[in-house]
Nucleic acid binder design. Structure first.
Lengths: 229, 229
DNA sequence: ATCCTCCATATTTGGGGTTA
DNA sequence: TAACCCCAAATATGGAGGAT
């Protein structure tokens, strides 16, 4: 994509790596979303930037998808090993949101009931996340104040002892708180996934039916399965 | 992509939906892989086909990513009585992709109270608009059904008269009719079928032509404001 | 029914330059 | 520094026809 061809290899230049991460992250999230809508599939995606920030998408519910994963994968994990790989992460921190506008008065006109339902659910989820976040902020704030109060009490006591006879006024708390080849696309895909497989970065689930046509060995190996019934 | 532009909407044709699923699934897996390599990010992806098959990709280790997710994202749900949820970029439909994209994956950790409040307000507005839209759809749907019911009643009446050997009298549909012409017979059959439909004795096909069933309407009504569990 | 190939067009996204 | 905008090269992927 873009001017130059990309080598499937960690981008060295820190800046462009960051930029690419941002772009591709959005692209991936979008694609995941589209897949879930277009094909009525359940999709869950977790992304952690090298700087440690987390991003996620779940067409239905992350926990549900995870549970489903554990359930289905657990069953066929008898003869499959999964392994981990450790890559490293670095600094950086991603940004702000374009919070404003646009959620105000848009399209909706072309949406069907189902989409509306889903959209509503998503928005509700968002609201819930935000509320949770607010609660957390508040509770942190409160404990901070408590801590301060304790400190102040000590200080007060100290002062009293040190200079008894004096009367102290109540102290008021306030103030601030703290790449691939263009040969054949299909083959490319297979190759990539195969690579993934070979390096153990992922593992295949070996679709429940071992009754896959055997004339596509490579594809079978590569693809996490051939498609769906 | 491809020949025609794509509507972000569930693909009706079962076959092409399956094909698209397969293609896009591969594409998504590939992109996820590329992101993890190029940008040195940790990516975990779960896909469940509508038929129930599971596919996955994990740059490091699925369990590790899940744990990390629970740790980072789950924090905000400590004192939360509700289940964890995720936002996705359905909001995209609302017009601007940007906000939605961010809302989708970005964790809220960098936001302050003020931003959170604003965001929450916007999301609530969105939810309200969606509900309004749903109400409108439902009411339109209901009036459509009522209208249909009237038509069917008329046809039934017509049928009754016909079957009793009464002279066929034009009752309502279109212009006057003579005797039992092939056309009227056809119409009669159609009426029966429709009647069966209306009484819920039959089941509907996949028709995408606004022909919803009672069941659907009922479900819509039920969902109207229930949103999701 | 599933999957592949081919092909034309829709999208994505490097790279640069600019601006908030 | 991060977020956009623009643009063209690089990809992704509908659609159609064919084989399995």
């Amino acid at each position: 994509m873009g001017r130059g061809k990309v080598e499937l290899k960690r981008i060295e230049n820190s800046t462009s790596r960051q930029v690419t991460f941002s772009k591709r992250k959005n692209g991936l999230l979008k694609k995941a979303f589209e897949l879930s809508i277009l094909c009525d599939a359940e999709v869950a995606l977790l992304i952690f930037s090298p700087s440690g920030k987390a991003y996620q998408f779940a067409s239905h519910d992350m926990d549900r998808s995870i549970a489903r994963y554990r359930n289905e994968v657990g069953l066929m994990e008898f003869n499959n090993y999964q392994r981990s790989r450790t890559i490293e992460e670095n600094n950086r921190h991603l940004g702000k949101q374009n919070i404003s506008m646009h959620l105000a008065g848009e399209d909706l006109s072309t949406l069907g009931m189902k989409e509306l339902k889903q959209l509503e659910r998503q928005l509700k989820n968002g609201v819930e996340r935000i509320r949770a976040k607010k609660r957390r902020i508040i509770s942190e704030h409160i404990s901070l104040l408590k801590k301060r109060k304790v400190d102040v009490s000590k200080m007060k006591q100290e002062l009293t002892l040190t200079s008894r006879g004096f009367r102290f006024q109540r102290i008021c708390l306030k103030g601030p708180c703290k790449r691939t080849t263009p040969a054949s696309k299909e083959r490319a895909v297979a190759a990539v996934v195969l690579a993934v497989h070979m390096t153990g970065l992922g593992y295949e689930k070996d679709g429940q039916m071992g009754s896959k046509s055997h004339h596509q060995t490579a594809r079978m190996l590569a693809d996490q399965d051939g498609g769906d019934p």
